[in-house]
């Protein structure tokens, strides 16, 4: 009887049609655009990395010429997580010996220009430096200054491209377009693994939109049961044949660093 009535009533058909239409329409709304999905993945990636507070690491950079000649740089990196702003970083150089004791302090900001200072121990001078020079090489390596700064959502526009397996791991492939005009890149394409949201591979495209560099990350270690860090990052320049490996020898979290360890005066004490 119910069925009869149902089919008899012409307005019911209208209701069903409307319902179907609404369902189709809303499913289209619910399905994210590629941009929204890209942003959501980036946000999840950032969220999973929150709360590490501070870290101290000892690292080496192995610079390689196209002929295979190698040079080693050594440095220590102190980092401080800043909630609702970019992180703070202090890098102290130990090698090459002529720049030993030189220290670099950076306050990164999501939207405004980063604040950066350099300390030159030979003349005991702290100088404010221009952070717009972000596309320049960091210590003659294949890493640019902007590759070394913290990952902030506000610095990019995101676009989800596809799912893809990379080295046996299910990944999201995301296109990131830098918002800052001073960036040396037109875009980069990042392979983020679905399980832990780690960037496993990044392709950097130069301002003419041709492939410039490929970064791959290796030997990921888990810290504080939550934070994944690659112990080795390999940057290959596809245009020059040069490469740089960034190797982390030791890394400690929650060492008790505070704001006053990231001051201009702390630069002079950094050794």
């Amino acid at each position: 009887m119910l069925i009869q009535r149902f089919f008899k009533a012409p307005h019911s058909i209208l209701v069903i049609s409307l319902m179907l239409l609404t369902w189709c329409f809303s499913s289209q709304v619910l399905a994210q655009s590629a941009e929204e999905k890209g942003l959501a993945i980036a946000k999840e990636r950032k969220l999973r990395d929150r709360g590490w507070s501070d870290s101290v690491g000892e690292t080496s950079m192995i610079l390689r010429s196209p002929r295979g000649d190698e040079t080693e740089r050594k440095m220590r990196i102190k980092s401080l997580e800043v909630q609702s702003d970019g992180d703070k970083g202090l890098t102290i150089f130990d090698q090459p010996l002529d720049v030993k004791g030189t220290a670099f302090l950076s306050f990164s900001h999501p939207l405004q220009a980063d604040e950066q200072w350099m300390y030159l121990p030979k003349i005991k001078r702290v100088t404010r430096i221009q952070s717009k020079n972000k596309s320049g090489p960091f210590m003659g390596s294949e890493f640019a200054f902007e590759d070394m700064s913290s990952f902030e959502i506000e610095k990019f526009k995101f676009k989800y491209l596809r799912d893809e397996k990379y080295q046996g791991q299910d990944c999201f492939v995301i296109e990131q377009t830098p918002i800052d005009e001073d960036s040396g890149y037109s875009k980069n394409i990042t392979w983020v693994d679905k399980e832990h949201y780690r960037a496993l591979k990044v392709e950097y495209y130069d301002r003419k939109n041709s492939l410039l560099k490929i970064l791959t990350t290796h030997n990921h270690q888990l810290y504080l049961d939550k934070y994944w860090r690659p112990m080795e990052m390999r940057m290959e320049n596809r245009q020059t044949g040069k490469g740089t490996d960034l190797i982390t020898h030791s890394l400690k979290f929650k060492t008790g660093l505070a704001d006053n360890d990231f001051d201009k005066d702390s630069l002079m004490r950094a050794r």
């Binding site: 610079l63 010429s65 040079t71 090459p96 002529d98 720049v99 320049g136 090489p137 003659g140």
Partner: peptide, 8 residues
């Protein structure tokens, strides 16, 4: 002029 090379 900074060459930004390995040798600085």
């Amino acid at each position: 002029w900074a060459l930004n090379d390995i040798d600085g």
